[in-house]
Write a protein that binds this DNA or RNA. Structure first.
Lengths: 344, 344
DNA sequence: CTGTTAGCGCCTTCAC
DNA sequence: GTGAAGGCGCTAACAG
């Protein structure tokens, strides 16, 4: 009946997609043979496989992966939980993840925690329900419950961004505390002694907090003090960095201002220039991340370069390695690099 | 036997998660009752429902959504296909989508096409296999095949970013051609006559191409000509904008340089300043997108502001409306806004 | 190499 | 209100 491929029941966006059975009937073979042919199993004779695949293509057959994963105990979805998407950092990481996973046919299911541990817990529960093959998370602060769910999940888990933690399963990232210390040493070595800090809400962003702690610790070692430390409870941005810097400059001017990240530091550069200051003669400025834009400025920003895409790529690789039965390292430090720049 | 909740078979990350059946047995009811209780159906007496839910929680029961979606013909995943994640634009859109969907319990499954139509087609096929409840796509250039798959898919589809297209189902975006024309009119009205254009690879980015076409068309109307049009086949970035501008300035200097987007325009600002030019006295510069950083610069960028988060949010809303049986508009133009700035 | 049988875990439909 | 039967579409395991 469906001989001439013109099905009268085809009512626009309502008709059901063909299943294995339809293809099997049309090709005159069993369902399992179609299943094998479509998946490229070598258990089907080549000519037959070719014919079956042709029929499948004609019918526009698309395998139902829900059913496949349920029956085969193997989803190729990966849960990915990030704290934010508002700056380019996590977009870079996500791109790295996507690149690494995509090449092997895995697809990310995305959740964004907004740096809220409670919400993060909900996301974990919710995404685990899809029985993903693995989970990648840049934590916002795991609750006890979150930790229990992850410890219980029978799948590879990669905690990304921070290599200082003791991972539930694996971690890929860098030492934020170390990055803060590295920056401090650099600045002290250049002779700076009088520091201030400007950042966004660090109670939620633990990694930014670790950088500040590292900075402060190393300055203490050098006998310096971190002076004014201004934090504002809002998302980081260029405009915020600029405005907070203006306020800071209204008071006593420090010799160096360290910022929580490049975005804010760039705002700081604008504010200082606007105040008629020459960088780094009158004031030095540092950021964190090594964003393209900071390095493209007339005076490239002094900052710590991070390998965000690499973190994503390697995290994907580690997770896949585990799925392939290998035994990848529990902890991977992708490192960071001081970028001297010209603002200090 | 599992009386005291201490299962000896619990070998770290190997044990199977409890299913409806386990919960049912433990609670002394049928599976379907547990199913109903867990989903909050009113078909279960309150006290019973409470007890069942308590048992489920004790056992750490997490519903298998794969099975749920397969049996119930309703996944709550949404396929999202974007051309890139390398600049903040699509990260903003994705955040908007995530926000809109998350509130209703939908989760995005992400694919990135890298502006490759062939890859985009693969992604569509692949993601449709998960039987998502809907699909959101910022197209890279639909192939005939892609178009057929989408037209055939029995689900709401939102094509985002561009409102000029004739959508397969729905569209949410803005008129890029209109944005180009708007910018041209603004510049002509301010008396500019001598234009150049700098952009990245527009053969792949059709929307950027549409902006250029609109700009050119409107300039023609005003009797002006778009002079040097430099395009380079690589991803857009601040550094690329800066370098291409340096090259351009080595030749005849135009009165205005329009850039494909803000990133490149910011690079242009840096290059012009580096060349000792005063903006806008010696040369005017325009971008596209209205990024935070462009507006935080000492001289805010002349640009077209786009509502990226809004596009994502509204796209999610439209898609959900359709799932709720409503009849949302086929075409939604979220508009754009000329930002006069101080660089022209 | 190909096919048959028996589920995966859940939900719809229909009895009670 | 609660439950029993059957099936969603696919694949593992085994049979031929």
């Amino acid at each position: 009946m469906a001989q001439h491929g013109n099905d009268p029941e085809r009512s626009d966006r309502q008709h059901r997609r063909p299943t294995l059975r339809q293809v099997a009937e049309r090709a005159g073979v069993s369902e399992i043979t179609v299943s094998r042919a479509v998946r490229g199993s070598s258990l089907v004779a080549s000519p037959l496989a070719g014919r079956v695949r042709r029929v499948a293509a004609e019918l526009g057959y698309v395998p139902n992966r829900l059913a496949g994963a349920l029956a085969g105990h193997a989803s190729n979805q990966i849960a990915v939980i990030l704290p934010a998407l508002s700056n380019i950092v996590f977009a870079d990481v996500l791109k790295g993840l996507e690149t690494g996973f995509e090449a092997r046919g895995y697809h990310p299911i995305l959740g964004v925690s907004n740096y809220e541990p409670g919400h993060e817990a909900d996301l974990i529960r919710s995404l685990l329900g899809w029985q993903p093959a693995g989970l990648v998370i840049a934590t916002a602060g795991l609750t006890r419950q979150s930790r229990a769910m992850l410890a219980d999940a029978a799948m590879p888990i990669v905690e990304i961004m921070d290599s200082d933690i003791d991972p539930i399963d694996m971690t890929v990232g860098l030492s934020h505390h170390g990055a803060g210390r590295c920056l401090a040493r650099h600045l002290v070595a250049r002779g700076y002694r009088d520091f201030a800090f400007i950042g966004h809400d660090l109670s939620r962003d633990r990694r930014a907090r670790a950088r500040l702690d590292g900075l402060r610790a190393e300055l203490a070692v050098a006998g310096c003090r971190l002076g004014a430390t201004r934090l504002r409870a809002s998302a980081s941005s260029v405009a915020l960095g600029r405005d907070m810097t203006r306020h800071l400059l209204a008071g006593r001017r420090p010799r160096v201002i360290c910022y929580a990240n490049d975005d804010m530091a760039i705002g700081g550069v604008f504010a200082c220039k606007g105040a008629g200051l020459t960088i780094p003669r009158d004031i030095a400025i540092t950021g964190f991340n090594g964003l393209d834009i900071g390095q493209a400025m007339p005076a490239p920003l002094t900052t710590i370069g991070t390998r965000r895409h690499e973190i994503g790529r390697v995290a994907a690789q580690r997770l896949i390695a585990r799925l392939d039965g290998e035994d990848p390292p529990r902890r991977t430090d992708v490192g960071f690099a001081l970028i001297p720049g010209a603002t200090s």
